[in-house]
Simulated assay, not measured.
Amino acid sequence: MKLNVYADRISQPSRAVVFFCKVNGIDYEEIKVHIPKGQHLTPECEAINLMQKLPAIADGRFKLFESHAIHIYLAYAFPGVADYWQGCS
């Protein structure tokens, strides 16, 4: 199952998560959520993140938001990510 990244590139933390995935070769699908249109306030986004903030990820049934937490999770959960990313904050 592919990692889903919910992001709006207008958001710097969203860009950081997308960039992290690209740099580390993590197979992901970017789900574009447009903040100016209020798409992050929909019931679909609330199901991923009760705080209705971006970025957020869904890895199977596991869901997480807040870019620093996402970076740490990705560093430990995906093989091939360099050790120096673990514990980044």
Score class of each variant (00 low, 15 high):
52 Q>P: 10
4 N>D: 11
87 G>F: 03
77 A>M: 07
27 D>C: 03
42 T>Q: 06
1 M>Y: 04
33 V>G: 14
58 A>M: 04
77 A>H: 09
49 N>K: 11
58 A>P: 00
48 I>K: 11
16 A>M: 14
30 E>S: 14
43 P>N: 03
32 K>F: 05
2 K>H: 10
59 D>C: 10
77 A>C: 09
10 I>P: 07
62 F>I: 13
52 Q>L: 12
5 V>F: 03
86 Q>P: 08
48 I>E: 08
72 I>D: 15
39 Q>E: 15
26 I>T: 04
1 M>L: 06
6 Y>T: 09
77 A>G: 09
82 A>I: 12
58 A>I: 00
36 P>K: 08
33 V>P: 12
61 R>Y: 01
35 I>E: 00
36 P>Q: 02
79 P>I: 02
74 L>M: 04
9 R>G: 13
79 P>Q: 07
26 I>M: 11
44 E>K: 05
2 K>E: 11
80 G>S: 11
5 V>N: 03
53 K>M: 07
34 H>F: 05
12 Q>L: 07
71 H>G: 02
67 S>F: 04
55 P>G: 07
28 Y>F: 15
48 I>D: 03
5 V>M: 05
13 P>W: 07
27 D>K: 03
44 E>C: 00
42 T>E: 02
37 K>T: 00
10 I>N: 14
60 G>L: 07
47 A>C: 04
20 F>H: 08
39 Q>R: 09
23 V>P: 06
84 Y>G: 04
20 F>P: 01
22 K>R: 08
1 M>I: 03
1 M>K: 01
20 F>G: 05
31 I>K: 08
83 D>T: 10
34 H>Y: 06
11 S>G: 15
51 M>V: 13
55 P>K: 11
77 A>R: 15
21 C>P: 02
68 H>D: 14
7 A>K: 03
70 I>E: 01
43 P>F: 01
28 Y>M: 02
24 N>W: 00
1 M>E: 02
26 I>Q: 14
54 L>Y: 06
18 V>M: 05
81 V>D: 01
77 A>V: 13
14 S>Q: 01
31 I>Y: 03
